[in-house]
Design a binder for these strands. Structure first.
Lengths: 124, 124, 124, 124
DNA sequence: GTGGTCTAGACCACT
DNA sequence: GTGGTCTAGACCACA
């Protein structure tokens, strides 16, 4: 799992970390039961404050994706696939709503926005 | 032009105001040359600090949408339609990219996302 | 004497009026002893508040260019050419200083700025 | 970087700060990636309200010269030299136009204005 | 009346 | 600690 951070994007560090760990878990790149890097290890690797990593792991634990065990480390939990996908789709719908609002303000029609979706989808 | 603010959305007040005035100008609801409500008037109406309104108007002036004339008021400028639409589509593409990222993480395919787009489009 | 105003330039109305009357006097377009338009007349013609015209005429009187006579009107005084030119050159030097500061910050050399001067001079 | 403010010049504090930071960045005095003084630190040092510093930094961020990172500080971005020089030369031309207008009103010829330019250039 | 600027102080989110 | 936002109130310049 490689984590890449941007300090100028405006997105909080801990959100960037969360998103990338979450994606790695969902993709199966890190499997159920597997240990994540320790807080301090990851803080060193990413050259980031320990507090930001802590926040990321805590949030992921609150989401039910991982569990933090005192003195042992942090581990990937069995996936509740439906719940996680539900959360992600919620976010997708929210972003999509923003995109639609902007497009309508710009007087762009539905078909054009579908085209934009396809273009961006292919780029990723 | 009706402006509705949400204090729980997390979006800064001045951004909410900017977005709604911008939309009103682009939709032609307030026409070129027309005066906007005065800073103090709008602050009173929205029960919001003067500084938030000032920030909104200043930002819109920096965007080239309005002009603030000391002693007279704030006025809608002629639209540079292409430029404004370019900015909006830039924002739409950015939000769409977020939506795609979330959808892909959720292992949702392209067709499903198109369906989401259509649903949300019809809701607005 | 034709006076043209811009309400969006950021320059105060009364300054625009002052500058144009001053130029008309210095150019001899309105001669010594001649009457200027009345305050109210000019306010009507320019579709401008009386207060702005009053401010302009008062300032010009303070500069010694005109005299306002109760109940009679406003009249061009004999020119103290040297003093007026001194004031104008003071302003020219001040603007030139601004131009030089910007040019130096932009790492533009002296010769290039002379060229700019020539270009703009020919345009006017 | 030393910042000197004048409270009698009529130029807004935040504009004075902007201009001096901009000049320091363009001159290379503060290099790409370097941190600027924190908002509060600079406000204390200059004995100025936090809001004035905030406005300065925000405007410089909007110009693309710096980036403000929540929780970390404000940092100098890589320069888009051409764009910045374009903005500065625009300003230089505008001031030069003012100088020319004043000079012509004073019936001063082109050669004399070139001389003024040289004198002022050498003084700076 | 209008917009422009500034102060002093507060709370929030992030590192 | 950092920047981001907001309030309440003030004074100035302009029309």
């Amino acid at each position: 799992m490689r984590i890449v951070l941007s300090s100028t994007s405006g997105v909080p560090i801990y959100e960037q970390i969360k998103a990338q760990i979450r994606a790695a878990i969902l993709s199966g790149e890190v499997a159920e039961g597997q240990a994540l890097p320790s807080l301090r290890q990851l803080a060193r690797d990413l050259k980031v404050s320990l507090i930001s990593i802590t926040r990321s792991y805590n949030d992921l634990a609150a989401e039910g994706l991982i569990v933090n065990v005192q003195g042992r480390g942090s581990f990937v939990l069995p996936l509740d696939v439906d719940r996680v996908r539900g959360q992600l789709m919620e976010k997708a719908r929210s972003s999509m709503t923003d995109a639609i609002t902007a497009a309508r303000t710009a007087r762009v029609d539905r078909a054009a926005l579908h085209t934009v979706l396809d273009q961006l989808w292919d780029q990723q």
